[in-house]
Amino acid sequence: MSPQSERTTDYSEMEQVVIDFLNKNPNFFERNPDILCKLRLPHTSGEAVSLIERQVTALREQGEQNRRKLDEFVAIARENELLNDRLHHLTVKLIECCDFDEVINTLQDLLHDDFRAEAVELHLYSTSEADAQTNPDLDGFREFLNSNKPRCGRFPTKQLKYLFGPQADDIASTALIPISGESLLGILAIGSHSEHRFHPGMGTDYLIRLGEIVSKTLEVVSEPGL
Rank of each mutant, 00 (worst) to 15 (best):
M1W: 14
Q4F: 10
Q4P: 02
T9D: 12
T9Y: 11
D10Q: 10
M14F: 12
V18K: 02
I19K: 15
I19F: 14
I19W: 12
L22W: 06
P26L: 01
F28N: 05
F28I: 09
F29T: 10
F29K: 04
E30A: 13
R40W: 11
S45P: 11
S45W: 11
G46H: 07
V49S: 10
L51H: 04
I52G: 02
E53Q: 13
Q55R: 12
V56D: 08
V56M: 08
A58M: 15
A58Y: 14
R60A: 11
E61H: 13
Q62T: 10
G63T: 12
Q65W: 15
R68A: 13
E72F: 05
V74P: 02
V74T: 06
A77R: 11
R78Y: 08
N80V: 07
D85Y: 10
D85S: 10
R86A: 08
R86I: 06
R86C: 07
H89T: 15
K93Y: 08
E96V: 13
E96A: 09
C97F: 00
D99I: 02
D99A: 01
F100L: 01
F100S: 02
V103G: 00
V103D: 02
V103S: 01
I104K: 01
N105E: 10
N105G: 08
T106S: 11
L107R: 02
Q108E: 14
Q108A: 14
D109N: 14
L110K: 03
H112G: 05
D114R: 06
D114F: 08
V120A: 04
V120Y: 02
V120H: 00
E121D: 11
E121C: 05
H123F: 04
Y125A: 05
S126Q: 04
D131N: 12
T134S: 12
L138D: 03
R142C: 07
E143P: 06
E143S: 10
L145E: 04
N146A: 15
N148M: 05
K149Q: 14
P150T: 13
P150V: 13
C152S: 15
F155M: 01
Q159K: 14
L160Q: 09
L160I: 07
L160Y: 03
K161W: 04
L163G: 06
G165R: 04
D170V: 10
S173F: 08
S173L: 12
P178C: 12
I179C: 00
G181K: 02
E182I: 04
L184H: 01
L184W: 00
L184R: 00
L185A: 05
L188Q: 01
I190Y: 06
G191Y: 00
S194K: 07
H196A: 08
H196K: 07
R197K: 09
F198G: 02
F198T: 00
H199K: 11
P200M: 10
G203W: 07
G203I: 08
T204E: 13
D205S: 10
Y206K: 07
Y206Q: 05
L207G: 00
I208Y: 01
R209E: 14
G211P: 03
E212C: 02
E212R: 03
I213E: 04
T217V: 00
S222I: 03
L226P: 06
